[in-house]
């Protein structure tokens, strides 16, 4: 198939960016979106031009590196997929495809399609863990049985890959879905309960400090989240937060 690409080009964090147009021919539907970008970059290099910078690593939807805003949607059309899992068969022959980076003030552009998401790391550092030492002197893993449903709910929250699509898609650039997924995972497990109060406070404080916006419950994040992280996590976090501010 043939397509027209309009791709964001931005030399560096402070440079002005603009869309650049490239025609692509003979694209196979079995190619992944990133493989199509590889083909473009290969051609640009051979023509003596600069390839587009973009983040990627696992190319199987689990590392959370890839992050393209395609035709107005985080990770493009298709539900529950990351950009690297998107295949060209999702597009029509002759289509024009717009490719942009995540846009949020807490995710500044580094170059072209690559952005800085270290604000997410700092939120986790603020409290997204259980304070247990790694000495191995912990109790037996089966000492505390955990009901299967709780374990599974914690697991579902824990599958967040930290990609930032939720932020990119939110009109307020809110990080609530990401933060609430971690808060939920840890507060659903007995091991995480003792610290739940401080955890939610500290993570929310850091989130505000990083410049993420407020949540106005539009639910767009849940729709675009490649891992199907549910809005119920936000509700749970709000409850945890209320509890922690009251006591």
């Amino acid at each position: 198939m043939n397509i027209t690409l309009k791709v964001w080009r931005q030399k560096g964090p402070n440079a002005k960016g603009a869309m650049e147009t490239h025609k692509m021919t003979d694209i196979s539907g079995d190619m992944s979106f990133l493989e199509m970008m590889d083909v473009l970059n290969d051609r640009l290099i051979r023509d003596g031009e600069e390839p587009f910078a973009f983040d990627h690593d696992c190319r199987e939807g689990i590392c959370g590196s890839c992050s393209m805003f395609i035709n107005g949607e985080a990770h493009g059309p298709g539900r529950n997929v990351t950009t690297c899992q998107l295949h060209m068969r999702s597009f029509k022959d002759g289509e024009t495809i717009h490719v942009e980076p995540w846009r949020a003030s807490a995710f500044p552009v580094i170059k072209d399609l690559s952005v800085d998401r270290s604000s997410f790391d700092r939120i986790i550092q603020a409290g997204g863990y259980i304070s247990v030492n790694t000495s191995g002197a912990t109790q037996d893993a089966n000492a505390i049985p955990i009901p299967k449903v709780d374990a599974e709910e914690a697991f579902d929250a824990a599958t967040c890959i930290g990609c930032g699509a939720c932020v990119a898609t939110c009109k307020n650039s809110s990080a609530m879905l990401f933060v609430s997924a971690k808060v939920s995972q840890l507060s659903l497990l007995p091991q995480g309960k003792p610290e739940s109060k401080e955890r939610v406070q500290r993570m929310v404080d850091q989130m505000d400090l990083e410049g993420f916006g407020n949540c106005t419950n539009t639910g767009a994040c849940e729709v675009e989240c490649p891992k199907g992280i549910s809005l119920t996590n936000i509700a749970r976090m709000n409850r945890e937060f209320m509890k922690s501010s009251l006591s």
């Binding site: 191995g136 912990t138 893993a141 049985p145 955990i146 374990a151 697991f155 840890l186 091991q191 995480g192």
Partner: peptide, 20 residues
């Protein structure tokens, strides 16, 4: 020790209906 350590950290391993 690894499994004990990971469970203490909140790693949500698969469980049986009995919770183990």
């Amino acid at each position: 020790n690894i499994i004990d350590q990971c469970v203490a950290q909140g790693v949500p391993f698969a469980r049986e209906y009995g919770g183990l």
